[in-house]
Nucleic acid binder design. Structure first.
Lengths: 106, 106
DNA sequence: TGTTCATATGATTATGTGTTCATATGTTAA
DNA sequence: TTAACATATGAACACATAATCATATGAACA
């Protein structure tokens, strides 16, 4: 059983700076447009325009949000000719979303 | 090995409403004051004043943020006389934070 | 080179949000 | 009851942020 009380393993408070980084990370997940983008590219990489079309949103809006995702290393970028393809950076990202989904759906 | 490509298990996009709820949930984690509160009460329940003292912040500020945590069912509340004790609602919360920490610390 | 297409970026605007101050609510004990 | 204490709440303000429009950058190809 995993859910028994564990008084030993006391979660020590990380440095303030780490806590700020942590909040900043979750802030990125805290926007529905970015969440939708992440779902959209979770299976396969997609170009900016394709994402915009899939979500029926402005190319500019998507581009702005992709930048946020990029800056936080949540997406991977690959250029091929004129288009730039985005995909999720690693399984980490998926796992964070899944954890959140669990909470929301329960 | 876990990290091989799995083209079958395509993460289906949940309903828009769920995605909004998901973003809203992460929004709650996206504030350093709330993150610090959650760390503060992760080991043991604490009263509002104690939390405020621990974080050297106004009682009012803590109270406002505790309300947000309450509304999102992330904390548990117990009254004992004049004081009200807060603790994390379940291990879920801890796990979400830990996932985030993993990403931040890597 | 000039044109077209895909993406990125800057400025603006509207909206959301965290903190503070002042005060209200509610509990305990005299 | 009243006083003292703990917590919650409302209003105000300062600040952050997402979407939009217009435009810039950069690649491909005639």
């Amino acid at each position: 059983m995993e859910n028994k009380v564990t008084p030993d393993k006391n979660t020590e408070m990380p440095d303030l700076e780490v806590l700020f980084d942590l909040a900043d990370l979750f802030k990125v997940f805290g926007d529905s447009t970015r969440i939708r983008i992440m779902f959209t590219i979770s299976d396969r990489e997609m170009s900016v325009l394709n994402i915009a079309e899939a979500l029926k949103m402005e190319q500019s809006t998507i581009s702005h949000q992709l930048r946020v995702l990029r800056q936080n290393k949540l997406v991977r970028v690959r250029r091929e000719g004129k288009q730039i393809y985005y995909s999720l950076d690693d399984d980490h990202v998926k796992k964070i979303i899944e954890m959140g989904l669990d909470h929301v759906l329960e």
